[in-house]
């Protein structure tokens, strides 16, 4: 399987603050990858690096086998729907499609036209008068009709109402089913991504916390509930993700390939949202996948 995005030691610093740090990541082709994390975790920074809007301070990133925004050919391979889906307010929908046709060699007119027709939009309407959902659809149409290999969307549904959100994701998923396009989209709301993503990257505090196929992530993460006990007594093959204790009870989230045999635990499966939330909690030293030495390890004491 080839990677559509490959980052090695990628970092971006704004003056003295690292917005993204030591990010090593491989996103396989043919997937819909969700990039989740709280606001300010570095999602937009990572996506901006991927489309070449930003240049890395450290490390390297390759998208579809090339340096982001490295030339017209590279730009043609990657579509981008930016946060808040910017459009030219005083240009009409028709003008936007013409813009796309003029600026993209692989432009697919029929895709663009069909989408606009199905959305029931008047092509002569100015983009500035569209609703948020319609504007997002227009931006998505531009991104899809460009026929990219990878379509990157930054918080595409964050500002949409539930109906517009659903419609947007429907169009996006339909495009994935119909055309051979990989998708990378970010969101700070996991439930937006639950249905559409089959690959997940969790970004917290400028670092990648966990990454992998959704199915296998769900299969390998468990919530253990049982009488209170110390977390360092866990078997070596169980990685502690998060832990919380009352005076009687301990609730742990662990990641393990092996079955959990200890009868003291009540084992439950985790939903995607709980899984992501577990990673967003205060990190402990042994949850760090790459043993980051720059930050002091934090004790889990709750």
């Amino acid at each position: 399987m080839t990677a559509v995005l490959e980052a090695r030691g990628l970092g971006k610093r704004y003056r003295r603050r690292w917005a993204l740090q030591d990010c090593t990541l491989e996103i396989p082709a043919g997937h819909v990858t969700g990039l989740v994390g709280p606001n300010g975790a570095g999602k937009t920074t990572l996506l901006s690096l991927a489309v070449g809007l930003l240049a890395p301070t450290a490390g390297t990133i390759e998208v579809c086998g090339g340096v982001p925004a490295g030339g017209a050919e590279q730009l043609a391979k990657v579509g981008f729907v930016a946060q808040d889906t910017p459009t030219y307010a005083n240009l009409s929908i028709e003008d936007h499609l013409r813009l796309g046709a003029h600026l993209n060699p692989r432009w697919d007119r029929s895709i663009a036209q069909t989408r606009i027709e199905r959305l029931g939009l008047d092509p002569t309407q100015r983009a500035g008068k569209l609703s948020g959902g319609q504007r997002a659809q227009l931006a998505l149409t531009l991104g899809l009709a460009k026929r990219p290999e990878l379509l990157i969307l930054d918080e595409p549904v964050a500002s949409l109402d539930p109906l517009a959100r659903r419609e947007f994701l429907q169009v996006l998923m339909e495009a994935v089913a119909e055309h051979d396009v990989s998708v990378l989209l970010s969101s700070h709301v996991v439930s937006d991504l639950e249905r559409v993503c089959d690959h997940l990257v969790v970004l917290v505090d400028s670092e990648v916390r966990v990454e992998g196929e959704v199915e296998s992530l769900l299969a390998t993460h468990h919530r253990l509930t049982g009488p209170r006990r110390e977390t360092d007594s866990l078997p070596a093959d169980q990685h502690l993700v998060s832990a919380s204790h009352t005076d009687r009870q301990s609730t742990l989230v662990v990641r393990t390939e092996a079955p959990i045999l200890d009868p003291a635990w009540t084992v439950t499966r985790l939903g995607l949202e709980d899984l992501v939330l577990a990673y967003m909690e205060v990190p402990s030293a042994d949850t760090r996948r790459n043993g980051d030495a720059r930050k002091p390890a934090l004790e889990v004491l709750r």
Partner: peptide, 16 residues
């Protein structure tokens, strides 16, 4: 069809 399911449910085609 996969496309129908996907566009109705807004889910990942790989799921279907």
């Amino acid at each position: 069809t996969v496309k129908d399911v996907v566009s109705r449910l807004a889910i990942n085609p790989n799921t279907v």
